[in-house]
Write a protein that binds this DNA or RNA. Sequence first.
DNA 1: ATCGTTAATCGTAAATATACGATAGATGGA
DNA 2: TCCATCTATCGTATATTTACGATTAACGAT
Lengths: 105, 105
Amino acid sequence: MAFSKKEEFNRNDIWLADVAKALSHPARIKILKILTGMNDCMCGDIVELLPLSQSTVSQHLKELKSVGLITGKIDGPKVCYCINKANLQKAKSEIDKLFNQVCAC
Amino acid sequence: MAFSKKEEFNRNDIWLADVAKALSHPARIKILKILTGMNDCMCGDIVELLPLSQSTVSQHLKELKSVGLITGKIDGPKVCYCINKANLQKAKSEIDKLFNQVCAC
DNA sequence: ATCGTTAATCGTAAATATACGATAGATGGA
DNA sequence: TCCATCTATCGTATATTTACGATTAACGAT
């Protein structure tokens, strides 16, 4: 069988897992780093810095956006992608909380 | 096409992505929390606390073990699973480093 | 109004992940 | 020795992810 049982877990663990999933591909980690270095960054700029096609990069951006780690503002024919600091901060603190619980680091 | 391009990214980003992937299912997050509460914990104990079959739990344990977040010591017919504090600490500090880079939290 | 640029979405293919039951292998006890 | 217990692995089915090219849609400029 293969319909997911994810929903049977608690809300916060599901949310943490979703954030972790957003970070679970090196392209998406690199995209976050790229967005950090450039304040005003469109999809095409990112495509040039990755070994992936435009459509694939667009999919990765969509995943990061869907969990709120980045935002995309429409700017004419372009889209300006930015880091979402508030949500990253929240993600960081929840991940820290998990690690502190789990290993008392 | 669909053979992965992950290897074309840098080592550290790949490692971070692998750790994040290990955390990308709520069952695995819950397993980490369960192992924290119980010092000496066998697979069967975990199965009872999750809405999943024994074989599925075994697979999740294998994934956590493969990135080094937990260890499994054979103890007679049982296997004693434990948190790997050293590796969790390393994971925590690398994830922190990423977040600090990216959002200056 | 048409053209070029930009990015999302569609359609598709292949790989990987999630889940289960059944089986196999290893151990300890009767 | 034989049995019960425990867990990994096998085989399998379905869902999701990764990746691409082609197309669509939206905009600005000519």
